[in-house]
Design a protein around this nucleic acid. Structure first.
Lengths: 276, 276
DNA sequence: GAAATCATTCTCATGATATGGAAATAAAGA
DNA sequence: TCTTTATTTCCATATCATGAGAATGATTTC
């Protein structure tokens, strides 16, 4: 063992190794590092891992076996490959259960509100509606407000259209077939062609605009948030009086919201569609 | 502090606890045990965990912190709760990537759901259980739902029986020996002969029916998916309220699911048993 | 507002326990 | 067949995790 001579070694002198994660339990660090490598490479062999980490093969083997005993890894004796196990899947999925969109999104909404000065919202899609989950209100005296749990029309809301934009035209048509596209204001896109045309733009741009389509005098900018399957399950938006959100502001805030949505996607363990 | 019951607590007794998983690295055993508890309980506090495991709080805290540093756990300072972290989710999902099932099956499930109007599922077999991997929910207001990662009884689920039907009677007997076939409803096939008789039919038909055998009012239709060795590693199904799946519908949807399962098998580079 | 409870962060002596060299097996080449 | 390479098991050694203890801060309870 490379003894780092002299005294310098702080009580818990962590190996000089590559592992940047600060921590305190060596076996765990090493094991989880192995687990990560296996997960990221869709399987590895003992020697690969030993080489990769610089640990003794016997040590690596012991750790792998132990992880496997807990179902975190699986071992194919044929190929000698170690792969991620079911238990890891089960445990990982517990994440979804208390990944409350509400709580995770909160800091992101706060940042959005600070950056834009307008009320920020999260909403999900459910059975053809948009359901508002949570919001952070702007400090302005005149501001948008949606009560959590409130439903809104998917075709006439920034978040709704952002979500729709991730679907194919035929899927959109199917979802909306049967329903009539309710008319709210002179701006409402209440025909399928009009809606699809707007959605075309949203796809290209990455974020949607609700230009007084639901409420006169109110504009929204929104972008979609994806789940682990690359499906848009939610969206975030800012909304405020049209007078405070003129064209040039839209162009500035749009990308901000788009970026924030992507960050939220990541924070929730989701991924954008095309990747992978 | 006064150690409860003097010596009773085996000093470093290899395992004081209930944990039956054999292994060789103590820290790992303990840490993964903690991880499991957290995952199974939707979050726990330090004292809970210390009490539960009999470990010293300082030890538990050290392990939790270490796990958290790797993103396997997350900690909410507000509530003091420890919950499963994103990294665990990411790693767990590598399981699916490896088995390719998750992503490959998705479009097939979508098609099934569109064709039948009922929730479509994929699940794999693991240690005598069925583990649900992914699903596409029907749009109907009343619909079946299985959380990914959830385990179910192999003998009382459509997918479970579909998989069993590809095994020989002796293999089935062997797998189920020791276990008692849990009883869920009046329809549950909770004796081996009854189960084998049903499986006989499934073999002939190519698809299985779960006729309210697990949950009253719920029916499923399922068919097996094979790997490259011709072994059934998974199954797909649709599930919905019995009222929407009467006998005649079963006869219509059964073949659809059977065919879709075969296509999925092919898409994954698998093959049905007898060929070759 | 004091007491009680709980979480977090230190330190440290102890020895249980993870470690890696080496040897035994197994598998793959040649 | 004999090498070479990969995996697995063993075991003596000292590294490293452990848990008591104590101090602090944050809440909650009475």
């Amino acid at each position: 063992m490379a003894s780092q001579s002299t005294a310098a070694k702080g009580r818990r002198g962590r190996k000089a190794g590559e592992n940047a994660v600060p921590s305190s339990v060596q076996v765990l660090d090493r094991s989880l590092h192995l687990l990560s490598i296996v997960a990221d490479n869709d399987g590895s062999t003992l020697t690969d891992l030993a080489d990769h980490t610089g640990m003794a093969p016997s040590t690596v083997h012991r750790l792998l076996t132990s992880l496997a005993n807990h179902g975190m890894l699986a071992h194919d004796p044929e190929s000698g490959e170690w792969t991620v196990g079911v238990r890891a899947f089960e445990i990982g999925n517990a994440f979804l259960r208390y990944r409350k969109l509400g709580s995770i999104s909160r800091p992101f909404l706060k940042r959005l509100m600070d950056a834009c000065g307008e009320t920020a919202n999260v909403a999900i899609e459910d059975e053809g509606d948009v359901v508002f989950i949570s919001q952070i209100e702007s400090h302005a005296p005149m501001r948008a407000f949606f009560r959590p749990g409130r439903r809104g029309p998917i075709h006439a809301s920034g978040i709704g259209k952002a979500i729709l934009s991730t679907w194919s035209d035929t899927d959109i048509g199917q979802m909306l077939s049967g329903k009539t596209l309710a008319h709210f204001t002179a701006h409402t896109l209440d025909t399928l062609p009009a809606l699809l045309k707007d959605i075309q733009q949203i796809r290209a741009r990455g974020w949607s605009i609700d230009d007084e389509e639901h409420t006169l005098g109110m504009r929204c900018i929104a972008a979609p948030v994806f789940n682990e399957h690359g499906e848009a399950i939610a969206g975030i938006s800012i909304s405020g009086p049209a007078v405070r959100l003129p064209k040039n502001k839209l162009d500035v805030f749009g990308p901000v919201i788009h970026r924030t949505a992507d960050e939220l996607t990541q924070a929730m363990g989701g991924r954008k569609p095309h990747e992978l």
